[in-house]
Each structure stands twice: as C-alpha cells, then as structure tokens.
Design a protein around this nucleic acid. Structure first.
Lengths: 222, 222
DNA sequence: CGCTCTGTTGATTAAATTCAAGAGTAGTGG
DNA sequence: CCACTACTCTTGAATTTAATCAACAGAGCG
C-alpha cells in the first residue's frame, strides 16, 4: 500500500483553499464534505465546473500542471489532506502502472467535464438540475432504501445554480417543479422518490462515469 | 525521438472516424484538418465538446480509457494517423517522464473543457463566439500580418453553434453583429481586424491554455 | 434580539429558440 | 453546359425560456 504523506485539515464552508493564480506543490484529497471547482471571469461571475466528494482527489491534475486556473472552494465544512506533488510523482515514476491509474483518474474527471459542457449547453433547466442530481447520486453511491434514494445534500440553491449555470431564482422554481412532479425533493437531503422517472426526465446515461474502471473507494491510510 | 507506428488516413468531412460506444485500441493524431469531439443525447441533440487541430492527439485519453463516450468527426477533409495504445503505453512505461508529458497533454485538453463549461454556461452569444474565435486563433498560432490576424476556418455556422451551444440562426445573427462592429469577420477565413477589441469583447484570458508548458509543435516523423 | 443567509414569490424584461421561407453556392450527373 | 440537389447563409415574426428586479419570510447564529 502507498504511504503518502499528508495531514488532515479542516476547511470552513465557502472558503477557497486553493486560490486562482497560485502555483501549488500539492494535490488535495477530499476526506469529508463537498468541494466545488470554480472558474470566474473578470467581472467576478462564477461557475462551478466540477464537484468533488469524499474520496476524490480534487486537483490531482495539478501534479502535472501546477498553475491554478480554477479555485477550489469548500461548499460545506470539509476535511482535506494535502499530498505533495513530489510524493505523487515519484510514486508514479517508480510504479508506471500507478502513474497510469492517476492519469486514468484525471480522465474520469475530464469525462464528467465533457458531460457538463453538454448539460449546460443543451439541456433546459429541469433536465439540467435533474441530471446533476442523478450524477451526484451515482457518484456518492446512494442506494435505494424503502423504495427511495436519499443522501445528504449540503449545497444551497445558489450553489446548484453555479453548477447548472442558472440564476438562483430559476433554480428555486425548477426545484419546486421537480418536487411537485414527485421526482425528487432537493433540500438538506436529496430524496429521490422515482429514480426511473428522474433518469428519464434528465435523459441520464451513466456510461460517461466509467463505473466499471472506477476503482473502489478505499479507506484512508494515514 | 519516438518512432511510433501508424499510417496516414484520409477522412471525409462530416464523417465519424471514432464512433460512440466502440472500444478503441488506438489514439488519433490529427495531421491536417479540423475535428470535433461530439456528445449526444438520446434524442440525437449534438454538442461539440472539443475541437482539435493539426498536431493534437484528439483522443489520447483513450489510451487509458478505451470506451468511447464521445465521437470524433471530421469537420473538414482531414488526415489522421492512428497510433496503437500498445505503442503509447509501452513508451510511457519505459520513459515515465514521457508518460507524465502525455498525462499533461490530456490535462491541457481538460483545462480547455473547463473553460468551455464556463463559456457555454456564463457568457452570452456574442462573448461566447468571440471567445471561441480567440481560443482557436491562439491555438493555431495565428500571427498578425498587415495589422490583421487571419487564418482558414473550415467550420460552418452550424458547427460553431454546435460548439457554442447556440442555434444556427442565432449564430448567424451574432456573427453578423461581430462583423458589423469591425471586430472579426468569420467566413471561410477568420479575419480579426481588432485583436484587442475581440479579446475585450470575449473577456478572453489565455492562461487556461497553459502556453508556457505547451510543447512546441514538432513535424511528424513517420 | 438583530443580523445574515437561504428560500420563496410576483412582475417585467431580455435573450435565444422556433418556425418558415428565400437566396446564394458548390457539386453531380445528364 | 445546364438542370438538379444539397448545403449554407440569411431574414422576419412569433414564442419560449431564463434573467432581472424587488420584496419578504423563515432559519440559524452570535
């Protein structure tokens, strides 16, 4: 087993722990919480371009590209471990198969990014939010219980808007519509009453998540 | 110098040379022409999620993730060379630094993808198309001549719409507006009259292209 | 208790889509 | 060489979706 160095660190909600423009010498493993990767323009308009959940290396790519062009912000109270690039790269050099796995992990994130371009570009508000919820449900590994899928959801409607490229007002109305239709209740928890219906409404196809090649999540060894 | 196997192949315009759902055992180097990476939904709505120009490995990522989740289509008459994954991966295993470079190359594409999420999500039609043109101008390495930047542009307005997530009708009106304002003339050639003005109109910041770490384009050794 | 943040509602406005049709251009085959 | 077809670009009008503006209510926290 790899014994990567690093120490756990708490990040407050809405705090940037990797900032635009800096040059980093480590990648961040998310241990708990939810983090958003943000891009912004010169007027300060922000867009979440990726969401990361526990088990994700939110910026593994920085190992080969240390200039930060999108910030990482905690969207809830979050625990991270900063892992030095030196450790990652030397391990990858020693075990080329590991290097390939890290590369593959980055490409899994990239495939999600591609789907987000489609999501934001081609789907209307309802499909877009439904699709986002489907993706998160699969990624967190939410399992049905009592005919319902439920998982904690610390994001605000504003966060959802930042991810789906919609205004908070429009997110609110769309979330209400999804609730009224009995598909999904998006609150402090997401409660999916009708997974099949939600998948259909979102036109969700999980192939882009490459679930078969995705490594199982392993508990953190410190 | 690497001596990767492969033979040149002509692809007709509008032809998919890597198809959705297949499993590939090679990556495609673009030698000439322009190719689009397409995602689509069950209704057949299409979205270009990436553009590739000569010198790009359009689907290098398939070396570590061979299941095709987005198709590659020639947007003009195109020449490609198919390079076996076996050759790429064994070279990467032998020379870990090369493996890192390939990984880095994939991450450069990923950074562009991230910018596209922002582009499609947060910019209006004019900024969006202007931004796309700025990006392509930089990537093809277009240089000013006679106070004007000009390069061939084989894409149709429909292609631009597929990339910018706009209808062809709206692309047309927006392209005309950009022409009227003297910023850029988008036709069989792109003619940029006012680079500074276009950059400002697009809110374009080339940092996401990581130009400093981008390897210089080398002529193909066969 | 008062502040801030989040969610909610209504009215208005703006941006982009949709629908429909016509004009120009290039390529194909007779 | 011309007729025919397909594609691209263009225009106008009507419609739809989402943004904007403006308030207010409730929850949580110091």
């Amino acid at each position: 087993m790899l014994n990567l160095p690093g120490y756990a660190e708490q990040v407050r909600s809405n705090h940037d722990f990797v900032k635009l423009g800096e040059r980093v010498d480590h990648s961040c493993l998310i241990v708990a919480g939810v983090v958003g990767r943000f891009d912004q323009d010169s007027q300060g308009n922000r867009q979440i371009i990726a969401l990361h959940i526990p088990g994700d290396m939110a910026d593994l790519h920085s190992a080969v590209q240390p200039e930060v062009t999108s910030a990482l912000q905690a969207l809830s109270t979050t625990t991270i471990v900063r892992i030095p690039h030196s450790a990652i790269l030397s391990a990858a050099r020693t075990y080329p198969t590991l290097g390939e796995a890290l590369w593959r992990d980055c490409m899994a994130d990239s495939a999600i990014l591609a789907e987000w371009v489609f999501n934001v570009g081609r789907r209307d508000a309802k499909k877009r939010i439904a699709h986002l919820i489907c993706e998160i449900a699969v990624r967190v590994g939410a399992a049905p219980a009592n005919g319902m899928i439920m998982f904690p959801f610390p994001l605000t409607q504003t966060h959802v808007g930042d991810a789906a490229a919609l205004t908070p007002v429009h997110v609110n109305r769309t979330v209400q519509a999804l609730r009224r239709e009995g598909l999904v209740d998006i609150g402090k928890n997401v409660k999916i009453n009708d997974w099949g219906g939600l998948v259909a409404a979102a036109d969700f196809d999980d192939r882009y998540l490459h679930l078969s090649t995705k490594p199982k999540r392993v508990p953190l060894i410190h």
